[in-house]
Design a protein around this nucleic acid. Structure first.
Lengths: 141, 141
DNA sequence: ATACGATCTACAGCGACTGTAGGTTCAAGG
DNA sequence: CCTTGAACCTACAGTCGCTGTAGATCGTAT
């Protein structure tokens, strides 16, 4: 059975050592076994959960939502009704995120492809960012 | 000469009143004129700067990057290559994010729509988001 | 046996807000 | 005018998700 130190976990997932300990303190990952010298030793399952956590964070999910998603992953063995509700809620969140990202992408592509960077003409990046017609969200409130 | 209260600025740009004051305290926008009762009164130029700030934040720029961009906007003859570089970097990040979100979306949709919640098959959310091949950033360190 | 990097705990600090308390100002209606 | 109530003011604590520091201990390679 393979074992990993916290540093190996960090290298394999890209999550910083301090952040791993922070996740543990928040209850997002289980407290792992310890050596006699009280150093953490993780197994393969812990590695997978951490990789999941990392990707979910990169997608912009909050830690509470991630806790829900993790519960969802374990749900099929139990009652699925709450799991489906979480799935629907997260699906809606994902759809909103994708919609916004698609708009961001368009604007950024326009910015990145504007005038030649070194060229004598004026830089459109600033203009584009200031343009009211390109507002991403409806801004009420 | 049109004048706007902080609340009107907020409504016009979608930036919350408290956040506008925060931006001022961070030096990102100039301290506006005040009424005799010490309430802020903004002009059209301030509105434009705030709109710029809002859009840049939505695109994921940090406040320091935004300060740099604003400085660039005031020296338009200077080379704007760094601004293009920032835009390209953000664009790449957005593309990676969208790709992963699409996969998660598919999995969540499958789970949310499963006719047979109890036997719909193993939940693959963790697998989908745990997949190393989908990593957004290079993770060295 | 020693050296030296990795790990430990505890806690302070950061970025970008957000919320609260408690008071003041402005504009509209009576 | 005067009242009323929303909008505004300052100051500061709290939030989220980390990140960094200090000082001590552990573990492994030579």
């Amino acid at each position: 059975m393979k074992e990993y130190s916290i540093g190996q976990m960090s290298r394999r997932t890209g999550v910083k050592v301090t952040t791993i300990r922070y996740y543990e303190s928040r209850g997002l990952i289980l407290s792992p076994a310890r050596t006699t010298g009280r150093q953490r030793r993780y197994d393969e399952a812990a590695l997978e959960r951490l990789a999941f956590l990392r990707h979910a964070r990169e997608l912009g999910f909050g830690l509470d939502d991630i806790a829900d998603l993790m519960a969802l992953a374990e749900a099929p063995l139990k009652d699925c009704a709450p799991a489906h509700e979480i799935a629907r809620k997260q699906l809606a969140a994902v759809d909103r995120r994708m919609k916004i990202l698609a708009q961001l992408r368009e604007e950024l592509a326009r910015m990145a492809n504007a005038d030649d960077p070194g060229h004598a003409g004026k830089c459109r990046v600033i203009e584009v960012l200031g343009d009211h017609r390109l507002c991403i969200g409806a801004h009420e409130a």
